[in-house]
């Protein structure tokens, strides 16, 4: 049985249909990356999976006893809330010092235990979030734009870490990212999302799929390609999809 299976999921937020009839499954040990333009419903899909959003239609089914480790897009800690790294790892379940140290080492964030969360650098912060997510021995690790604010070597190292963690713990990984080229190399499966699933499969397959190229362009460097949409992309659906992308206006002009 799949860890998570989704059938016919639709989500409306504030009057807009963000997700439309999504079918999706993820199995043990897989690394799956969701790519898609801004507003394509990537985070919404993740939030529906963790149960933070109620589907308008369709079902999200977890394997019984599924343990999820979640690394949010960003975590704002109010400055009035004192929080050491060690204390943070105790949320929501207290763990032993040995477990805490092991998780920090696994995430590449050793030696930070006594530091205040508010005083960490972006990369350290994300690693601590990862360590916390690993503590529950998750079957499924979910990362929402986990490398936002990291420089390129930083995020490459972070994804390297994720692959190591998967190999070590055997958990499945589901992540959302903008950094197509980095992420696609590290994934077993790529899902291209734009309100619905446009295409999915192995990274090489998706990268050459017409739907993917329509969204991200034909260039090889995915990140650059984001700025060069082709607008001729059409779907054989009856309903009207908002595929008009905003003009990104190339900054380098």
């Amino acid at each position: 049985m799949s860890l998570v299976s989704i059938t016919g999921l639709s989500v409306r937020l504030g009057g807009n249909t963000v997700l439309h009839h999504v079918d999706f499954t993820i199995d043990r040990g897989e690394i799956v990356t969701i790519v898609g333009p801004n507003g394509s419903g990537k985070s919404t899909l993740l939030r529906a999976i963790i149960g933070a959003l109620r589907p308008t239609a369709g079902r999200v089914t977890h394997k019984t006893g599924l343990r999820i480790g979640y690394v949010p897009q960003k975590l704002h800690i109010d400055p009035t809330l004192p929080m050491t790294v060690r204390r943070f790892l105790d949320l929501p379940v207290r763990v032993s010092n040995a477990e805490a140290v092991a998780a920090l080492d696994e995430a590449g964030a050793g030696a930070l235990t006594a530091r205040q969360m508010a005083g960490l650098s972006g990369g350290q912060f994300q690693r601590v979030l990862l360590a916390r997510a690993l503590l529950g021995k998750p079957d499924l690790l979910i990362l929402d734009e986990a490398t936002q604010g990291l420089d390129q070597p930083g995020s490459a190292a972070f994804y390297q870490k994720i692959a190591e963690v998967r190999d070590h713990l055997g958990c499945a990984v589901l992540m959302v990212s903008h950094e197509l080229h980095v992420v696609m190399a590290a994934s077993d499966r790529v899902v291209c999302l734009n309100g619905h699933i446009c295409c999915q499969g192995e990274p090489e397959h998706v990268a050459s799929a017409p739907e993917y190229r329509a969204l991200f362009g034909t260039g090889t460097g995915g990140a650059l390609a984001l700025y060069r949409h082709e607008h001729s992309h059409s779907h054989d659906h009856g309903h009207d999809h908002d595929h008009t992308h905003h003009d990104h206006g190339e900054a380098a002009e």
């Binding site: 939030r47 963790i50 933070a52 979640y70 949010p72 975590l75 105790d90 929501p92 379940v93 529950g136």
Partner: peptide, 19 residues
């Protein structure tokens, strides 16, 4: 206490932990 703190930090973090 623990559930309250987790929910205070971030609602999605709480959801993922079943809170």
């Amino acid at each position: 206490w623990s559930a309250l703190l987790t929910a205070t930090l971030n609602p999605d973090l709480a959801h993922a932990a079943g809170i």
